[in-house]
Write a protein that binds this DNA or RNA. Structure first.
Lengths: 204, 204
DNA sequence: TATTATACTGTATATATATTCAGTATTTTA
DNA sequence: TAAAATACTGAATATATATACAGTATAATA
């Protein structure tokens, strides 16, 4: 994180306070009023400097299009991201994968968790996991036999029961007789366990 | 707090999501784009309705000058009771029936709800409702065919699909082939609908 | 039954706002 | 020591945006 000047800090603080107070970001003119500048270009150049140093983003051509970058937003509060289980692609916490967030107490499930995963398909239906259910996922590699895991095989992400058969063989077991067990040879196949289910949420 | 229409709720949600995503409120045109309106006045009138009902404030003459009133947002953090579904006995909110409470935002499920009901048995397993799951119950008598209802027949409380067959006959349909439909003749039997399921919560 | 609220389309416009250009001056960096 | 960054004023402008006005249609309410 690049250093910012005291004056740039004042502008950044001003933006933060303004949003806190009004609910929306300031215009260039608003910043001038708050900090006593006489030209909107004073605000403009400070904003561009803050953008260059990666403290804010400015949406071009958009009124009040300032937003403060806040890398800690997802981790700190009680906002948990909902991530779509796309057929190919990992459920990372990259912003583009976040459908929305859900506000929920940290201690909501018996164990801490990191995000909600939206389920596609019915491969776990006999375990009571239906399409569009939200699984509370805890990122962990401490997996016990019988745990419901979120596993990535190559680029495919699935939710299955975890069954270790031997030191080399793991089976990913669905809860639906229409689906087959997935046998994974750890020496050949690239298996990554994203985490395990610690709870479930359904809206209907 | 005055009631808002489903469409107004959509607009309110849209604003909330937009702010979450971008860091600043939407314009009228943004709302139109998100919700498929073709005239900015569609957004305008909805906004005015939401303002009148005190869900938002609109800063006059100010671009993106929408802010969501705290009441609508911070009015979460409620304690919801968890009630055991005992074979005989009604899931009333009497203190002796409350196992514990769960803290959860008001808008957690798509509809408001009143309490959690802890499920016994597997009569709804094909609907993804398993033993010890917690159903979010909304106390209401507005039941549509196919809704999952919490019904009391004499002193027995069950969770089933609701199917109205005629003006006199209602069927309570399980989601498990090991169980039988319950046919209720409204003229003979005392059927009371406690409410319907608006969501589900599982901890494992 | 009349009235109000809801739910839109469509057009028009004053103005709020971002943004560029032209300067001046000081400080920091290479 | 030259170049770049900082820190402003001041004016101009294209456009993003709120907002009013004129309609149409349906649902809810009194």
């Amino acid at each position: 994180m690049k250093k910012i000047t005291p004056q740039q800090q004042r502008v950044l603080d001003c933006i933060q306070v303004y949003i806190k107070k009004t609910g929306f970001p300031p215009t260039r003119a608003d910043i001038c009023r708050e900090l006593g500048f006489k030209s909107p270009n004073s605000a403009e150049t400070h904003l561009r400097a803050l953008e260059k140093k990666d403290y804010i983003t400015i949406e071009s051509g958009t009124s009040r299009g300032i937003s403060i970058k806040n890398k800690a937003v997802i981790d700190n509060g009680n906002e948990y991201p909902v991530i779509g289980l796309v057929a190919a692609g990992s459920p990372t916490l990259a912003e583009e994968n976040i459908e929305r967030t859900i506000n929920c107490p940290k201690s909501f499930f018996d164990s801490n968790f990191d995000y909600f995963l939206k389920v596609k398909g019915l491969s776990m239906k006999d375990a009571g996991i239906m399409e569009d259910d939200l699984i509370a996922v805890k990122k962990t590699s401490e997996i016990k036999n019988g745990d419901i895991v979120i596993a990535r095989l190559e680029d495919e992400v699935t939710v299955k029961f975890f069954k270790r058969k031997s030191s080399k063989i793991v089976e990913l077991e669905p809860a639906n007789e229409d689906f087959q067990n997935i046998v994974v040879n750890l020496e050949q196949d690239k298996l990554h366990i994203e985490g395990k289910s610690v709870g479930l949420l359904r809206k209907n």
